[in-house]
Structure formats: structure tokens, C-alpha cells
Computed example of a mutant assay.
Amino acid sequence: MAHKVIFHLPRRELGREDIEFVVEQDGKRFGTLLVSKGAIEWRPTNKVYRRKLSWTKFDQLMRTIGLRV
């Protein structure tokens, strides 16, 4: 199950404007990952809500359940 990731970078220092990563699976949009100075957010396709983690919480999550590589 390969994913295709497309991203758009803002033309200024990362701050209020997020970096957006569009993730596709089997040629269809799977979701969008939004990265900002304050947090990381996941927006699933066809959903109104986003899931948000602070960088501290993201670090804790990755250390707890992320696979070591």
C-alpha cells in the first residue's frame, strides 16, 4: 500500500501559514498533514474536523508507539 505525498511550501518563514502535505493512497486523496510552528494536524479526507497535536505531545506519541528505525 504505497502512498503518494505532495507538498506545497509557503514563500516565507514558517509561522502562521502551515506547510501542507497532501497524502494520496491508490490515486485518491487519503488526507492532509498540516505542519506549523505550534503543532501538527491531520485532516482526513471528506471530514470537517482535524486532529491536532502539540510538538511535545507528538514527541511523546512517537517515543511511545512509533517504530524504531
Results as ranks from 00 to 15, higher is better:
residue 1 M to H: 10
residue 2 A to N: 11
residue 3 H to W: 03
residue 3 H to G: 02
residue 3 H to K: 07
residue 6 I to V: 10
residue 6 I to T: 04
residue 7 F to M: 06
residue 7 F to C: 07
residue 8 H to F: 06
residue 9 L to W: 01
residue 9 L to Y: 01
residue 10 P to N: 02
residue 10 P to I: 01
residue 11 R to D: 13
residue 12 R to Y: 04
residue 14 L to R: 03
residue 14 L to T: 04
residue 16 R to P: 03
residue 17 E to Q: 09
residue 18 D to M: 10
residue 18 D to S: 15
residue 19 I to K: 01
residue 19 I to A: 01
residue 19 I to N: 00
residue 19 I to R: 05
residue 20 E to K: 13
residue 20 E to P: 00
residue 20 E to L: 10
residue 21 F to V: 05
residue 21 F to P: 00
residue 22 V to D: 14
residue 22 V to H: 14
residue 23 V to Y: 03
residue 24 E to H: 07
residue 24 E to N: 07
residue 24 E to M: 13
residue 25 Q to I: 00
residue 25 Q to N: 01
residue 25 Q to A: 02
residue 25 Q to V: 01
residue 26 D to F: 09
residue 26 D to E: 15
residue 26 D to C: 05
residue 27 G to S: 05
residue 28 K to H: 14
residue 28 K to T: 10
residue 29 R to I: 15
residue 29 R to A: 10
residue 29 R to P: 09
residue 30 F to E: 05
residue 31 G to R: 08
residue 31 G to I: 10
residue 32 T to Q: 05
residue 32 T to F: 00
residue 32 T to K: 08
residue 32 T to W: 00
residue 33 L to K: 08
residue 33 L to H: 08
residue 35 V to R: 07
residue 35 V to Y: 14
residue 35 V to Q: 09
residue 35 V to W: 14
residue 36 S to A: 12
residue 37 K to F: 01
residue 38 G to H: 08
residue 39 A to D: 12
residue 39 A to T: 04
residue 40 I to W: 02
residue 40 I to V: 15
residue 43 R to P: 03
residue 44 P to D: 04
residue 44 P to L: 05
residue 45 T to L: 06
residue 45 T to R: 12
residue 46 N to Y: 10
residue 46 N to M: 09
residue 47 K to L: 08
residue 47 K to H: 12
residue 47 K to M: 13
residue 47 K to R: 15
residue 47 K to G: 01
residue 49 Y to H: 09
residue 49 Y to G: 01
residue 50 R to M: 07
residue 51 R to V: 09
residue 51 R to L: 10
residue 51 R to A: 04
residue 51 R to C: 01
residue 51 R to I: 09
residue 52 K to L: 11
residue 53 L to C: 03
residue 53 L to W: 13
residue 54 S to G: 15
residue 54 S to D: 11
residue 56 T to A: 15
residue 56 T to C: 02
residue 58 F to H: 00
residue 58 F to E: 00
residue 60 Q to V: 11
residue 61 L to D: 07
residue 61 L to I: 12
residue 61 L to K: 09
residue 64 T to E: 14
residue 64 T to K: 13
residue 66 G to K: 02
residue 66 G to W: 03
residue 66 G to N: 01
residue 66 G to D: 02
residue 67 L to I: 11
residue 67 L to A: 12
residue 67 L to D: 08
